[in-house]
Amino acid sequence: MRLDQRLIAGMIRPRTRVLDVGSGDGALLDYLFRNSGCDARGIEIDMREVTRSVAHGLPVMHGDADHDLVHYPDNAFDYVVLQRTLQAVERPREVLRQMLRIGRYAIVSFPNFGHWRLRMQLLMRGRMPMTSVWSTPWYDTPNIHPCTILDFLTLCRDEGYVVQQWMAVDEDGERAPWRRSIRLANLFGEQALFLLRRKDTPHK
């Protein structure tokens, strides 16, 4: 399991209902079931990963964030997790709304487009940045909605979501040391990780 998945698992209380949107190889689901006693389920767009997960006894269905969340009832889950995918969905704002409709909490991670290396490349070269995180050329990239940590915070404020916890994470998933200043995190964090809740979900 990637280090940032451990950070996500650390945000999830034991014995809760979890939907992992983009569950990949199912590592987080497996961890949450075995170590936290969670009722953890997945949605995954890559059929090979779905087959592999189900063959490991994990409850995963083929689907995606844009089209399948809408079918779940309100408050079906305690947590809805979206890992490193927000920038690739068709309608990020709608996906967040759905996540916080069907779940009491949303855990969202995404690559931060505000990282200094990206800013630098665009400034110096005048071309779309290419880094290890943003590694596909503009005409091929699935990342159609990149955003910065500050952009995401603004969206949360506009939509009325409470940021219960946030952290910057580097590409390997190690927690970055920018815990106090969101502006420094926006400059030096390669990935961002947020725990959101609806205003009407009481803080515990």
């Binding site: 389920r41 409850p59 269905m61 079918h71 779940y72 079906a76 889950f77």
Partner: peptide
């Protein structure tokens, strides 16, 4: 699968190629 999602059932759904 979607009908089962509507009642938050525990569903796996695989299409075999």
């Amino acid at each position: 699968a979607r009908a089962l999602n509507q009642v938050a059932a525990n569903v796996s759904f695989v299409e075999i190629d």
